[in-house]
């Protein structure tokens, strides 16, 4: 589903990714772990197409198609989803309006009829209920006045509405207490299926107790330096990054 080959990327002219190779197949959960500054967030932004993150070499194939020249909205509609580490607050844009615009742009892209406000409210209520997102949050401006947990739950709600084929979770555990973490992880797990895949980007092993990966990769210095199964995360937890990456420490 996702195949990243020899990916080099720069931010402000500085090379952050220095040859990343990664293959994610349908139905799999991959975790990318790494110390601060290893390029984890850069990788998530490069995959989703953020301005200012320039691919200088290599390719990102999604369902066999190179997405590196695609706009962020085109990638999203093709089934890529980025759950933000720091979801943005957008004063004056209501959650409902934002979510409906997003859902309808996906539907238009698929050649489906747009949902009218009534149909949409029904849909969003049912999804929100399953995630424990309160109705009154839907009436507020996007993420404005939300707690850290509410913001992350809102990311998962968006994921539930857009049903991506590949979800990239960027440090989704940051700023969450254990209860909030469980709710978010349950939400993500509920959306997993044989037709989609998940890429979890995290600094800590903690999240991986709840979203159990099939493969774990260690990103350091802009490259994937080790790959393994779920046990690699535990090894990292025990030894620390310095313990297994003497040369990168």
């Amino acid at each position: 589903m996702l195949s990243i080959k020899g990916l080099h990327a720069t931010v402000d002219g500085k090379e952050i990714l220095k040859g990343v190779d990664l293959t994610v197949r349908t139905g799999e959960v991959h975790a990318i772990m790494g110390p601060n500054g290893s390029g984890k967030s850069t990788l998530s932004y490069v995959i989703s197409g953020r301005d200012g993150y320039e691919v200088t070499a290599g390719e990102i194939l999604f369902d066999g198609e190179d997405v590196t020249e695609m706009e962020p909205e085109e990638r999203a509609r093709a089934g890529l989803f980025l759950a933000f580490q720091y979801p943005l607050e957008i004063p004056g844009v209501s959650m409902t309006n934002f979510l409906r615009t997003a859902v309808n742009s996906h539907r238009r892209h698929r050649g489906e009829d747009e949902l009218d406000p009534m149909q949409f409210v029904k849909l969003v209520r049912s999804k929100a209920k399953a995630l424990g997102v309160k109705d009154d949050l839907l009436k507020r401006s996007v993420n404005v006045g939300f707690s850290g947990g509410e913001k992350k739950r809102n990311e998962v709600l968006q994921m539930a509405l857009l049903e991506p084929r590949l979800a990239v979770l960027d440090e989704t555990d940051s700023g969450l207490d254990i209860d909030a973490l469980k709710i978010v992880a349950d939400g993500v797990n509920a959306l997993r299926g044989p037709e989609n895949a998940t890429l979890v980007i995290t600094h800590y092993q903690r999240l991986l107790d709840y979203i159990v990966p099939d493969h774990v990769h260690v990103l350091a210095g802009g490259r994937i330096v080790r790959s393994g199964g779920a046990e690699l995360a535990h090894e990292l937890e025990a030894k620390g990054y310095a313990g297994i990456l003497p040369e990168a420490a």
């Binding site: 989703s48 909205e73 957008i90 004056g92």
Partner: peptide, 25 residues
């Protein structure tokens, strides 16, 4: 706000539609 713009585009909203939502707000 370019961050807000990217956030909306990352949800599949066209750039112009996202800009308009922000201007409108």
């Amino acid at each position: 706000d370019s961050d807000a713009l990217f956030y909306m585009r990352a949800r599949g909203i066209d750039e112009q539609a996202a800009r308009n939502l922000l201007i409108e707000a």
